[in-house]
Design a protein around this nucleic acid. Structure first.
Lengths: 339, 339
DNA sequence: CTGAAAGCGCTAACAC
DNA sequence: GTGTTAGCGCTTTCAG
């Protein structure tokens, strides 16, 4: 089946390509096209089932109506949730999303950005990986519109959509304290990522403000590449201490998942033997015998705002800095024992 | 920062744009470009940090190196798993994925395909929605390369990557029978989708082959839009019968998730009170007190094959039909009671 | 070995 | 109101 071009329909309607272009792009009024002619053009287009070649349009207008999205790992619940919102919000704004996952690898992160830039995406939504500051600065230097989401670099002035990780962690810790716990462990990834560091800071400060002495041995650091094993051994460690922990604050849902699964395995009961708080939720909590107390992020709003913020930058070409921070919500389950 | 064009680097290297194009596209040998000139060109390109405009390339070559992927719903584990594999396999083959989710809506499914076609994707990988046959036939008529994955239409001859749903369901049912069950319920979506119908057929035939009388009341149909409630009430129903069921075969992981959660709520013990088999797995099973016996699909291979098959069609332009069917694997947990 | 130039399909300035 | 035409940035034929 032969591809129908603009000039085919111009011919069919007996007019020039300019008129066809005007009419099909909704400029009929503005360009004062004769109503009868316009109708004829629209009819021809429909009849011939015309499909504009968006590649040609993009080349001409230097606008692709495409957003590049790079997530850290599509396996994370956060990525899935955010991707889904971003895609639908983008569609509403007449943008298409092209998509890639860095899998926490800096090289792959850079590759994806390059690919997207070569494809002349109009802008990028990024969940950056650790140590990608250089790449982010490069984007700024090249005037490529982008917005960071979830993970941010406080030392770089960028547009971002973030969570107040400090506050969420502070509140989580304080909640455990209010449940009567003093020996609270925190299980976090070993990472320089600001959002994870902030969770540590929230924990530390909540203890301090409640006059509980910080015990560094209660702060466990997990290697991403070996998370399950390290979570398990960490739990063993904090339970075997002279003053064993009676509560654990997991700073991500994945860590909580590993942890709860291991507690199951060891036959420890939540919350009677040990209290648990999870930063972020997991679908898996649904099958745990006890509702897990956890914080939730406003995925929907974050994703929506990311798109709107980016589209704003793209379409205004203004270089306003939009830095939006959301608060987490706490969902009270039954996994924190009232002493 | 001014965009560097081909002619900028031609100028910088003191040659024509043709030579630059040859060299940067790896045709230096073939076009017998002087090695010294070639080196000079490469150096200029690097020095000026040249980024080819892929839009212009695509317009000229009518090749976008883009694959459009439409999943049914990114919230399904299947979608996530497959998306991740497809993206990375596509990248290996030098394709980028543009992505959309139909959310089981026919209108949105058609929209996405149109958008992707207008963008001149080289091909499509589709998890089609119910009743999308017309749209699929349209693609064939327009000679647009595509491959269906997961869900197929047996009445349309297309390339596809599928699972032998019949066999997997047959095996699942037979497993429950071998555990000593006779009153086995099947909980499935109410849907005309072939893959789900096949699961029913596998169930029915396994019963028949094992001389167990089919009881239609044991076959529950769930409305997708109200799944949780309907699963709950279905479970109530089959337990309240004169001859209550002692085993349930859930035909998707989501259904199993709802079911297990409700069994928890009711205080029923798996497998002592009731056996459970899940078609497909869920991360959530990790937190259930008892390892859930389930089938798993070879996501990785299916996704990889989908890309390879599609790329094969795109690049050969041959119209070979590749129909690939995989078998599910069964993971033995402890959720099926040996009577 | 190298360069000039004709498009790919569309938009939009400009002329009539 | 409408038509002509010059590009957008690249590939590739053809001539030298």
């Amino acid at each position: 089946m032969k591809k129908i071009l603009l000039k085919d329909i111009a011919q069919h309607a007996g007019v020039s390509t300019a008129l066809v272009s005007y009419v099909l792009n909704g400029l009929a009024e503005e360009k004062q096209v004769n109503k009868v002619t316009a109708a004829r053009i629209r009819k021809s287009a429909k009849q011939l089932n015309y499909r504009p070649n968006q590649i040609a349009q993009s080349l001409k207008t230097s606008k692709t109506n495409t957003i590049g999205l790079v997530v850290a790992d599509i396996k994370y619940r956060y990525s899935t949730a955010i991707t889904s919102v971003i895609e639908s919000e983008a569609k509403k704004n007449n943008y298409t999303v092209i998509y890639g996952s860095s899998n926490e690898d800096l090289g792959k992160f850079e590759d994806l950005i390059n690919i997207f830039v070569n494809r002349r995406v109009d802008g990028l939504i990024l969940i950056p990986v650790e140590n990608s500051q250089r790449q982010i600065k490069l984007l700024q230097k090249n005037d490529i519109p982008f917005v960071l989401i979830d993970r941010i670099f406080p030392e770089i002035a960028t547009n971002f959509i973030a969570l107040d990780n400090y506050k969420a962690a502070y509140d989580a810790t304080e909640h455990l304290i209010q449940c009567g716990h003093q020996r609270i462990a925190i299980v976090n990834y070993r990472s320089s990522l600001y959002n994870l560091q902030e969770r540590n800071r929230g924990y530390v400060n909540a203890l301090r403000d409640n006059r509980i002495k910080l015990n560094r041995a209660y702060m466990l650091e997990i290697d991403r590449l070996n998370a399950m094993e390290e979570v398990n051994s960490s739990i063993d460690k904090i339970l075997a201490m002279a003053e064993p922990c009676d509560a654990i604050f997991f700073t991500t849902a994945t860590l909580a998942l590993h942890g709860l699964s291991y507690l199951n395995e060891k036959g420890l009961k939540v919350p009677d033997d040990i209290s648990v708080f999870s930063f972020d939720e997991s679908e898996a909590f649904k099958l745990f015998y006890c509702p897990v107390t956890h914080s939730v992020q406003p995925y929907g709003e974050m994703g929506t705002m990311a798109v709107q913020s980016l589209v704003g930058v793209i379409e205004s070409q203004k270089n306003v800095k939009q830095q939006i921070t959301f608060d987490a919500r706490m969902i009270n389950g039954k996994s924190c024992h009232e002493k």
